[in-house]
Simulated assay, not measured.
Amino acid sequence: MRRSSALLATAALTSSAFLAPSAARADATDGTTRAASVTADKQATVITARMGPNSTVSPGTVMTVYGSVLRQASTGPEPVEGLEIQLDVPPDLLEAGSIKTTRTFADGSFRAAFTVGRQVGKSGAVTVRFEGNEVLTGSQAGLGTLNVRNYSEITDFNAIPEPHAYRDPIVADGRLYVRPGDTGATELPLYLEYSLDGKTWRVWAAQTLARPMYFTFNDAKLVTKDAYWRVRYPGSLLTMPSVSTVDFVDVKYRTEWYVFNASPEPVKKGGTITVKGQLFRFRDLASPAPNAPVYVYFRRAGTSKWVQMAATKTNVYGWFSKKFRASADGTWKAVYKESSGYIGSTSPADTVDVR
């Protein structure tokens, strides 16, 4: 073991300042000299350390311990190089063959690692220590309690539809995984949660999975506000908790075309086609949608392209009406495009035969 010159000097002190007066001179009666007794005070050491990545981890995780050792010299704390550092890990938490010892570097720092064992559900305290030597006292530091749990993850989470119609139920699905491998986990509680501000979460619905698998929430409760949504698994003594990604769902009022018609049918070429309809919106009560922008489209027979023919607005009763010159067979429709507060809707298509 390497030691600094200062430590070696401390261990080798033989100055008369450390000799008892009676032992410093020869005994005149027997002609012998008594052995000198030496007293050397050991210097105290202090260990500081931390362990990561977390205190609750899955089997097979590599845990890393970082720390340092300082000796309390007369001039103040000083680093010590070459000290052997021991990790104390309960056997139930340790993978066989893990390295548990290391030595300090020139700056007194050290780094050690060990692999977590496979016994899920085990917990125990981990410490790091220096045993001490002829010139330094031993010391140790607690690294906290290490918990071995299966790892869980919620993937593919989605809340639909988006945007969401006011007072419609929400559907949310995803998948819960528990790793490593098939751990026999059963009766797994899941909670669908919502938040109006993205900070405070409340439970909307709950279910229990027989095993890790795909899940769907389709509760009959009606949604009336914009909200953030997530799914949470609270974990157990054998499995770590997990939370899905967050999905923001914008709630808007639904709209629907109650009436739509393009007439007359058939119509003489060069004649007039009248396209009209009535748009409703669904808030707490259904009512006509006044002053709503409407776009009229036409698709000529034998083609797939819709061409915008006019832009207009509904009256106070939700009605619009537009007239067009009949030039070819084709299909008509009206579109209300999505806005900040309302979901868009498209009327049924109506085909007019031009003769």
Score class of each variant (00 low, 15 high):
residue 205 A to G: 10
residue 224 T to W: 05
residue 210 A to Q: 10
residue 212 P to Y: 03
residue 205 A to S: 15
residue 224 T to F: 11
residue 205 A to P: 04
residue 223 V to R: 00
residue 222 L to E: 04
residue 222 L to S: 01
residue 210 A to D: 14
residue 201 W to R: 02
residue 196 L to V: 14
residue 210 A to W: 05
residue 201 W to Y: 06
residue 196 L to G: 14
residue 202 R to N: 15
residue 197 D to F: 08
residue 208 T to R: 09
residue 198 G to Y: 08
residue 204 W to V: 05
residue 201 W to H: 03
residue 203 V to Y: 02
residue 220 A to Q: 08
residue 227 A to M: 06
residue 227 A to T: 00
residue 228 Y to K: 00
residue 228 Y to N: 04
residue 226 D to C: 05
residue 197 D to A: 09
residue 197 D to C: 09
residue 198 G to T: 10
residue 206 A to S: 15
residue 219 D to N: 10
residue 211 R to D: 11
residue 224 T to Y: 08
residue 218 N to G: 11
residue 213 M to E: 14
residue 196 L to T: 13
residue 224 T to N: 08
residue 215 F to W: 00
residue 209 L to W: 04
residue 226 D to T: 06
residue 220 A to D: 13
residue 213 M to Y: 04
residue 223 V to N: 02
residue 210 A to G: 12
residue 216 T to L: 14
residue 221 K to E: 11
residue 227 A to V: 04
residue 200 T to W: 10
residue 225 K to R: 13
residue 198 G to D: 11
residue 202 R to I: 06
residue 203 V to A: 07
residue 210 A to T: 10
residue 209 L to T: 02
residue 206 A to M: 11
residue 217 F to N: 00
residue 199 K to F: 13
residue 206 A to F: 09
residue 202 R to P: 01
residue 212 P to K: 01
residue 224 T to S: 12
residue 223 V to C: 04
residue 218 N to H: 08
residue 202 R to C: 02
residue 226 D to Y: 01
residue 223 V to G: 01
residue 198 G to P: 13
residue 207 Q to C: 05
residue 224 T to H: 03
residue 225 K to C: 04
residue 206 A to E: 13
residue 214 Y to M: 09
residue 200 T to Q: 12
residue 225 K to Y: 12
residue 216 T to A: 10
residue 196 L to D: 12
residue 220 A to L: 12
residue 203 V to S: 09
residue 213 M to G: 10
residue 199 K to Q: 15
residue 222 L to H: 00
residue 207 Q to T: 09
residue 216 T to N: 07
residue 199 K to E: 15
residue 196 L to H: 12
residue 221 K to G: 12
residue 209 L to I: 03
residue 199 K to A: 15
residue 206 A to Y: 10
residue 224 T to V: 12
residue 223 V to L: 01
residue 208 T to I: 14
residue 222 L to W: 00
residue 204 W to K: 02
residue 201 W to I: 07
residue 202 R to T: 12
residue 213 M to D: 15
residue 223 V to K: 00
residue 200 T to I: 12
residue 224 T to D: 10
residue 219 D to Q: 06
residue 215 F to G: 01
residue 215 F to H: 05
residue 220 A to V: 09
residue 226 D to M: 06
residue 199 K to L: 15
residue 213 M to C: 08
residue 201 W to P: 05
residue 202 R to S: 15
residue 228 Y to V: 03
residue 225 K to S: 13
residue 202 R to K: 14
residue 218 N to V: 05
residue 226 D to S: 09
residue 215 F to Y: 10
residue 221 K to H: 11
residue 224 T to R: 10
residue 212 P to R: 00
residue 218 N to E: 11
residue 203 V to G: 00
residue 216 T to C: 06
residue 211 R to I: 06
residue 209 L to V: 03
residue 200 T to N: 14
residue 203 V to N: 05
residue 208 T to P: 02
residue 221 K to A: 14
residue 204 W to Y: 13
residue 214 Y to T: 11
residue 222 L to Y: 02
residue 227 A to G: 07
residue 213 M to W: 05
residue 218 N to M: 07
residue 196 L to R: 13
residue 215 F to P: 04
residue 223 V to T: 03
residue 201 W to F: 07
residue 206 A to L: 07
residue 221 K to C: 05
residue 208 T to K: 11
residue 205 A to M: 02
residue 213 M to T: 13
residue 222 L to T: 02
residue 199 K to C: 07
residue 206 A to W: 08
residue 197 D to S: 06
residue 199 K to R: 14
residue 213 M to K: 01
residue 225 K to F: 14
residue 219 D to C: 02
residue 218 N to S: 13
